[in-house]
Amino acid sequence: MKVDWNEFWVKVVDATGETVYMVLVTLALSGVLGTVVGLALFATRKGGILRNRVVFAVLNALINVIRPIPFIIAIVALSPVTRSVVGTMIGTEAAIFPMVVVATFGVARIVEGNLLSVEPGVIEAARSMGASPVRIIVTVLVPEALGPLVLGFTFMLVALIDFSAVAGTVGGGGVGNLAMTYGYLRFDTSVMVVAVAVLVVLVQLAQLLGNFLARKVLRR
């Protein structure tokens, strides 16, 4: 049974809204958490400004365990935790939890990598002026790495749109869910085409926004 587009477009708009909601909430939460983990990772590494072998080793190992797990497996594996935290295993809210967990560690690596690209000399200059480690992180490292950080976050944003579609296939809601239930299970190619088009447009918009912001920060 094919969908009736005169009425079905409302579902597309709703699903797009759900996707945008999932992605933005996840980006906000994982952005904050991942930045904290990334900063901790950078600062505690060997030769870092707050070097601490134990903290670094624990964080590093944790990330290396979480990151290789395919997202679709992570959703399923995390589902008991999701239920105890969110209260349910299906729907938009339930999809956000595993997305945040996985994205946090992705963001952490992105943040760590971009901070590593900051000239060590600049950090030394700040130290020579008597800046404390926390002050250096906030007023030197983050501003100096902001351009690449914005691009890194854009990369994460695009990845999250992908994640959200995957989450949709296991009952997470959003455009992915729409494509799965109507496009795949009911063999309606038109829904599939529209769902893919929506995802492509969302990714394009995310990339445009990221590029625009990065250009502003980098002044080029």
Binding site: E119, V122, A125, R127, S128, G130
Partner: peptide
Amino acid sequence: RRRRAVRRSIGMVFQQFNLFRS
């Protein structure tokens, strides 16, 4: 902490300038 206060009374200039690009 006290050393940081001392560093504020000692300026430092670098070969590669080490200016904040931001």
